[in-house]
């Protein structure tokens, strides 16, 4: 059936943020195409899970509920998803570009012999004229993604081997409830008839998941530090400033690699994408992989002792100076002037 499908990640009865973002985007695509939006969710103890999914305007939810499906493992999830997608033949399938989505989606694309666009940041619907065939293909998925370290945006399409699949980067799409009272049809997947013993040969021995308490994505203000901050201790001054003005602390990868700040606070291409109202970049040079994750901030302040630092070209305020001097002054004058 012509439809848009979203693979929803679930853990401990909670649908992942990214999946809610995908459902919101999926709804827009489905509306443009005039087709239903469908979801699949595989996990354990999922009774009532539709409460977190239907409101995005989902017409059908495929639920596979089995103790062996959580935590996520590649083989059982890919067997079930392959089965559902072969049966339903959707036009478009979306996954999060997470450690789960990027593990599962390519395995599925191989099994279904279809195309998969990685790590997209923009999705749209449009047409394409294929010169060789002298044929116009209507209503294709435009899967737009950064590549070459973020220096280009490529629009990738696939007109002949459906479904059209894409993984989507976390935190880029907006979460939007469609209708609180939307009702979905629930389709229970018969897990036992699909999975085989071989699907369980990989065993999880130990698992540590840090339910991160940082929410960079939602933070209105981010004080980010780079390698130029110099040490973990110096980062405490950034934290002080962030706490004072109601923001979160973030960092560049060089700062993370140097151990100044935790990995879950990394901003950029391989970290979190943020769009706060104010972004303060202290001691960050502005490599393209970093700016890819923060260039949509409404206002940017760069503090750098190099007047030529590339990040300055994005900034609204460029403070040319030593951050060790500037940050304490910002703290001081904020305290003096805040109402």
């Amino acid at each position: 059936m012509k439809s848009v499908f979203v693979y929803c990640e679930v853990e401990n009865q909670k649908i992942a943020e990214i999946s809610q973002e995908l459902l919101s985007t999926g709804k827009k695509l489905a509306t443009k195409l005039g087709c239903p939006l469908e979801a699949m969710v595989f996990g354990s103890q999922l009774a009532g899970i539709q409460g977190q999914i239907s409101l995005y305007g989902v017409d059908r939810i495929f639920v596979a509920d089995d103790i062996r499906l959580e935590p996520y493992r590649t083989l059982p999830h890919s067997s079930i998803a392959t089965h559902v997608l072969k049966q339903e033949e959707p036009q478009i399938v979306l996954f999060g570009a997470t450690s789960v989505g990027r593990d599962l989606a390519p395995r599925l694309a191989s099994a279904l012999n279809c195309g998969l666009t990685a790590d997209t940041t923009i999705l749209d619907i449009g047409d394409h004229f294929v010169k060789k065939e002298k044929k116009e293909y209507k209503d294709l998925l435009y899967a737009i993604r950064p590549a070459f370290g973020g220096s280009i945006m490529a629009n990738i399409i696939n007109w002949d081997q459906h479904p059209q699949m894409a993984t989507v980067r976390e935190g880029v799409m907006k979460k939007e409830v469609f209708d609180e009272n939307y009702t979905s049809e629930i389709v229970e997947v018969d897990v036992n008839s699909i999975v085989k013993d071989e699907d369980f040969v990989v065993k999880i021995i130990e698992r540590h998941i840090v339910e991160s308490d940082v929410n960079l994505k939602e933070a209105p203000i981010i004080v980010a530090g780079g390698y130029g901050v110099g040490s973990r201790e110096n980062f405490e001054r950034l934290e002080e400033l962030a706490n004072l003005i109601g923001g979160e602390v973030g960092g560049s990868r060089a700062a993370v690699d140097a151990g100044f700040i935790d990995h879950n606070r990394q901003i950029g291409q391989t970290g979190t994408t943020v769009r706060p109202k104010l972004y303060i970049a202290a001691g960050i040079s502005g490599a393209i992989q970093h700016t890819a994750g923060m260039q949509d901030a409404s206002m940017i302040i760069s503090i750098n002792n190099d007047p030529e630092a590339p990040i300055n070209s994005l900034a609204d305020y460029v403070i040319h100076g030593d951050l060790g001097v500037v940050i304490p002054k910002m703290i001081k004058f904020y305290k003096a002037n805040a109402k």
Binding site: G115, P146, S151, I152, N155, I156, I157, Q295, S313, L314
Partner: peptide, 16 residues
Amino acid sequence: SPTKVKSVESIVLTAN
């Protein structure tokens, strides 16, 4: 290859 590059745009950091 099912995926085809329709178009490519280079990202120029806009100076403001």
